[in-house]
């Protein structure tokens, strides 16, 4: 496929037009990537290094200086620290506590608690805590 990239002056002018005979899996993946501002990160599964799409990630958790990546039903490890991931990921990834970054798009619902923190139920049924100090950030990202 011929690919043309034309520089523009501002982000507002950025757009992608795709001319294809058929939307294959690869094309759909490219569309998803452009549409969702999706990226990939490298993760480890035991000794294998894999590529994981960020839109498949539910949350990141730091335990004993190691960072774990949780998808719907799998867990991997990554070399990145949480502060590096915060810079790398898009606005849908929120620091929810000192040791966790959650994908807002994977939150099914939130429930407020007495102490100001919130419990978020994820689409895979897991529950995570959004600390009181990060609730304000969540509201800002959601435009509330």
């Amino acid at each position: 496929m011929r690919v043309e990239v034309n520089p523009v002056d501002s982000y507002d002018q950025e757009r992608a037009e795709i001319y294809v005979v058929k939307v294959t899996q690869d094309i759909q993946s490219a569309i998803d990537t452009l549409d969702n501002n999706c990226r990939v990160i490298s993760v480890f599964d035991k000794e294998k290094t894999l590529i994981c799409r960020t839109d498949k990630i539910y949350y990141f958790e730091s335990i004993d200086k190691r960072t774990y990546v949780y998808t719907k039903d799998e867990c991997f490890e990554t070399k990145y620290r949480l502060y590096e991931l915060e810079e790398l990921l898009n606005q849908f990834f929120l620091r929810s506590s000192k040791a966790m970054i959650v994908n807002i798009r994977k939150i099914k619902s939130v429930k407020a608690e007495f102490n100001g923190r919130m419990t978020a139920e994820l689409l895979n049924g897991e529950n995570i805590v959004i600390a009181r100090s990060y609730v304000k950030d969540l509201k800002e990202r959601l435009g509330i």
Partner: peptide, 15 residues
């Protein structure tokens, strides 16, 4: 009331 507003906003962007 915050909880309700957050849940409504999340519903719009949820995968």
């Amino acid at each position: 009331s915050d909880e309700k507003r957050i849940n409504a906003a999340i519903e719009d962007i949820r995968d």
